[in-house]
């Protein structure tokens, strides 16, 4: 079995201890960083994603795989930068102002990182300005917002309004999620996408970045 297949296999098994050394082995073998990322790390996560959707495995298995993926990424990152391999995309993520609930947001962060995205996690109680400024400073095309409370949900609308007021709606896409949200609520507040869970957040962000 090739090293990249072995990396995939160990990611599927959720073995965070072996993936870094296998990634190092692939680097030592002179394999391009892009191939290690796509065929090894993301390859394994794609299998995990499909199995999770089919209910063959559950969230803990996905998180274990994501942790293994992250461990490999830590080894690979310097080479990705050196070889100028772009990340799948940057996402600015946070729970909106007035809301301290971050469990769901943290899950989204893990899933996004596991899928190969770069995540700038602003934590909770994040102001609209902070979301937008951070995205601009880091050249991140996606702002992902979470809220648990119906009382804090309107802050998401403030962010989308502010993006429009500042003429950034071509440059910045928004995605929202959290217990009180729905497709209709997301549309009403002018968000570009809505995700009902962490796994679907990854799919929706992928669609946003591909112009879907």
């Amino acid at each position: 079995m090739g090293t990249l297949s072995e990396i995939s296999k160990q990611i599927i098994a959720g073995d965070a201890s072996s993936v870094p050394s296998l990634t190092q082995k692939a680097i030592s073998e002179g394999l391009p960083a892009r191939d290690i990322l796509q065929e090894g790390l993301i390859g394994g996560m794609s299998v995990i994603g499909a199995k999770f959707k089919a209910h063959e495995i559950f969230l803990p298995d996905v998180l274990m795989a994501a942790r293994a993926m992250q461990a490999g990424m830590d080894k690979l990152k310097p080479l990705l930068i050196k070889e100028d391999v772009p990340s799948l995309g940057k996402v600015v993520l946070g729970t909106v102002r007035g809301d301290l609930h971050d469990i769901g947001k943290n899950l989204v962060s893990i899933m996004l990182k596991g899928a190969g995205f770069e995540v700038i996690d602003l934590g909770n109680d994040v102001s609209p300005e902070n979301f937008i400024d951070t995205a601009l400073e880091n050249d991140a095309p996606v702002v992902a917002m979470s809220a648990l409370l119906t009382t804090t949900m309107p802050v998401m609308g403030e962010v989308t309004d502010l993006i429009r007021q500042r003429g950034l709606d071509k440059k910045l896409k928004t995605i929202v999620g959290g217990a009180p949200l729905s497709n209709d609520a997301a549309r009403d507040m002018g968000a570009n996408a809505y995700a009902y869970d962490a796994a679907s957040a990854v799919d929706r962000i992928r669609e946003l970045l591909s112009g879907g």
């Binding site: 559950f58 969230l59 803990p60 998180l63 274990m64 942790r67 469990i103 943290n106």
Partner: peptide
């Protein structure tokens, strides 16, 4: 850890 989703205990008994 703030959650027990990937705790060994969780994975053993889930």
């Amino acid at each position: 850890e703030k959650h027990l989703l990937i705790s060994e205990h969780t994975r053993r008994y889930l």
